[in-house]
Amino acid sequence: MTTTAPAGKRTPPRKPKPAPTARGLSPLRALGMAVVWLFTALNVLVLYWLVAAAFKTPIEIFTKPFALPRTWFERGQPFRNLLYAWDNAGFGRAFLITVVLVAVASVVIVLLAAPAAYALTRLGVRGSGGLTNLFAIGMGIPFQTVVIPLFIGMAEFDLTNDLFGLFLIYVALSLPFTVFLLTGFFRSLPDELEEAAAIDGASPSRTFFTIMLPLARGGLITALILNAIGLWNETLLSIVFLNENANFTLARALFAFNSAASYQSEYGGLVAGVAIVVLPMLVLYLLLARRIITGLTLGAGK
């Protein structure tokens, strides 16, 4: 009737047995597993191909797509493609321009969007909901529908083919998404801290700068990163608004390089150019994958 005798020491199995439910492979599950792994493997392969090809000669790229690069290494110029893109195709200058433009624009976007999102969510002003929706609708307007009047208008002020003009456009057109994203963050903050600050006699603007902004720090950083990624990759507006090599951003330079390079069979340089655009994003992604993914999918998940 009693069983307290310590059952002989048991050795744990290397892997606990899965539940019987998880074992049977239904056809659908088997198909799903196959597709998932195939898809994942393909993505990894493609990334490998891109990095490897940036160090290859065109012949190697096309005849030995999976081999490690050799020819340029044997000739003692392993970085030949990257250097070609950097120097001859203007990616070096474009890289600097893009870094500065993207950094400044992202910061300014957040500086403008944060107070607006705060005003829309936490000041209890009537009609805030409707105004928030107005911003949300802005996310649905394709850039193509505003680009012609924008171009004409900016030309009036001599702001076409001008980095400051592009900066203005980037800031303005990024606001709807950023404001919408940040309203979500501000709405989720607790009321108590704001009330406590008010009781302590802090002025509303002081409350915003010293209490609410630090609390929303996570959201602000996410907004900063997402805007940086978006602008780094932005192509249409840079094609329309920049037409001098000296002003090119990376995406614009890549666009211009594309036809010239394929004409000269400069595929090594072309892949290197693609890599220069993609790899900084990959590094950012490896560091911040979780934040980027949750940030980009946040609006939809609510």
């Binding site: 890549l254 655009v277 994003m281």
Partner: peptide, 16 residues
Amino acid sequence: ILFFPNIVAPIALGMF
């Protein structure tokens, strides 16, 4: 891994 292509510029994807 599956998410990564979303943060690559469409133009780079196209050329690639």
